[in-house]
Design a binder for these strands. Structure first.
Lengths: 370, 370
DNA sequence: CATGCCGATTGAACCGTTTCAATCGAACCT
DNA sequence: AGGTTCGATTGAAACGGTTCAATCGGCATG
């Protein structure tokens, strides 16, 4: 139930000065810089100066202007300022999915840095759809964002490079710039895969499975490659044959991880350890193992990837490869600010090192345990 | 350790054609509507019409304009449009912490609705600081957002109501409007607390602890009140004395939950069940219990609140009170759009019902178990 | 006393769009 | 033929700031 109440005009003595716009909304007439100027008895230019370069206006004038601003409740319009060659004080942030804690942490990192510089974040989830990404990129361009932080959904960076070429400082998040001249902040996924596999090999595992997402996702391919590198390095030593088998699932979700357990246990001989391409998969695998009455690390060592907040709280607590998510976003934001404000700038690729966090879910295989 | 690899500039064949503005930035001259008009041989008004009211321009003219837009790569400026009485096509979203999955899910709900209406989201984390909230509100006002979705950090809604009075459609997220004339979308936290406590009481628990956040947070106070209501209702029955004790921690984090375990186990006699004001606290409690070599639900039944994604994957899987997070955000966004576009509108408060999800972490106390 | 300089202030142009009233041509009506 | 109507198009005035060159007054200097 609602009433179509057209709000009565406030009791103003005399003429109705503000035109009633669309029925029923207050739509108070905005205070402009001109109102402030006339109240303070100065020109609009002086008000503008008081706002942007207070040092060049006389102290008493400044005070009068500030007084007038307070009295009128004036709030400057970014849009108007932007029009006259200015900046929009806005940064576009495009991630694959804002509901994914990995991206959320990154965005927080970026937000904390950008806030200090007066930027607002326009956050968008592409849902891994290049179409939706394009839609958002277009909108961000219309808003004339001063910068762009983006985890591209596809391999095609041309649209992004086009924006960057238009003068929009751009930093790729968790994605390499390839040949395009762009900044990027990434984590070394090959190294991460290596860390995970090396850890298991050191523990004495010689038959490792890898539950992986689609090979089209760069992170998945890299992590697998890293793991295989470690395996090959080990295998080269005499008297030691290491088996490495991959199970590919269509998406990096707990659900698919759980379903992968069937295939995992069907492997002959059964592997003694499993690396999962991310923690969600690992969570699913743990759950699936529990259903199958198998208990890690006894029956199978499990290693995840991402070290999400919850990894440490599982039981067994999950061994995982940690990525500096917050730092990733914060660093990307700093690069962005540097590019947006500093004159001199050269595109840079910053690569973070992942870190293995060993917990209870990984342990030496039964066979060689004392 | 990280490497700051400075990428070499890509080899470009020939002349650097783009004008260097401030050292090193492309800063290509923007294509304006005038460029499009002159290329298409029409007036700017016609181009504007082609953009906004294509039906009133002659088909062949329309085609010529669209051709010109494509050729020039014209992208309209939202800011310029906004200036001339238009809208900013932007909505401010202020949550307590974007890194908290509860808010993230809400924001996703809002995003999905708002995207369809062409709005961009300016997302801000107030970190529960009214000061930071105010900072953001000011910035959002400067950006002339077309709407505001906000979970207020404090009890003081005056600043928010002021914005709303200025004609900015506003919807409170997970927070009541009290006396202010505002829309709000909430979940019945009293009911949620009741559900949690009632569940434990039904299982036969008679000594329940409540790990709560600061009482200044309305949600915390309400959940506690709901739980106490259930306890009192039970206590009224003869021959049954129910003990209910509260442990207050300064913030709703896993860390504080873990630290609360000390106080929890120090209670004399030790409670047989614990309700946590949210899942993060519950996770911390689970972890702390594990460190203390106690295993829920055997040694202590644990109930959380929020039912975050990971709650179901813990072991024991966490019994929790689910809130329709995504729906909350989506509904708020729909209210916002209705208020922003429809002329007729009356402020509404929509209240969702929480739902108890029973899992392995809660079970009858040892004493009365068969 | 004339001159020059400097800090403070200001008028006016400008940014890129939307929109309104005015114009124009063609078709239609009497 | 003259008048009317209607659809398509357009010139120009906003919108609300920023900025630049010009102005002004006061003070020190020659």
């Amino acid at each position: 139930m609602r009433t179509d109440g057209v709000e009565p005009a406030p009791p103003t003595a005399g003429i109705v000065q503000r035109p009633v716009r669309d029925a029923g909304r207050p739509a108070v007439q905005r205070v402009t810089i001109r109102d402030v100027a006339s109240l303070a008895g100065v020109s609009v230019a002086t008000v503008s100066n008081a706002l942007n370069r207070p040092s060049i206006v006389a102290p008493d004038t400044l005070e009068r202007v500030q007084e007038a601003i307070a009295r009128t409740g004036f709030v400057r319009s970014t849009a108007a300022g932007q029009l006259r060659g200015g900046k929009s004080r806005t940064v576009g942030v495009v991630v694959l999915d804002l509901a994914n804690p990995f991206f959320t942490d990154m965005v927080r990192g970026a937000e904390d840095v950008l806030r200090k510089h007066g930027y607002m974040l326009m956050v968008c989830s592409s849902d891994e759809s290049t179409e939706q990404e394009l839609h958002y990129l277009r909108l961000l361009e219309e808003h004339r964002v001063d910068g762009l932080l983006i985890t591209p959904a596809g391999h095609e960076l041309r649209e992004i490079a086009k924006l960057a070429a238009y003068g929009v400082p751009t930093v790729l998040l968790d994605r390499d710039a390839n040949d395009e001249a762009l900044c990027s902040v990434t984590v070394d996924d090959i190294r991460g895969g290596q860390l995970a596999a090396h850890h298991l090999l050191e523990l004495g595992h010689a038959d490792i499975a890898f539950v992986n997402g689609p090979a089209t996702i760069r992170q998945c391919a890299d992590r697998r490659e890293g793991a295989m590198t470690a395996v090959r390095a080990k295998g080269r030593r005499p008297r030691r044959d290491v088996v490495f088998r991959e199970i590919e699932v269509p998406a990096l979700t707990a659900d698919h991880g759980e379903r992968a357990v069937g295939a995992l246990l069907a492997l002959e001989p059964r592997p003694t350890a499993v690396i999962c391409a991310n923690d969600l998969l690992a969570l699913g695998v743990l759950k699936g193992l529990a259903s199958a009455r198998l208990a890690p690390p006894e029956d199978l060592a499990v290693v995840g990837y991402d070290d999400v907040t919850f990894a440490s709280m599982l039981s067994p607590a999950l061994t995982s490869v940690r990525q500096p998510k917050y730092e990733l976003g914060a660093t990307a934001a700093r690069l962005l600010v540097e590019e947006a404000t500093g004159g001199a700038h050269e595109h840079r690729s910053i690569r973070f090192e992942p870190e293995l966090v060993v917990r209870a879910s990984s342990r030496a295989p039964r066979a060689i345990r004392p």
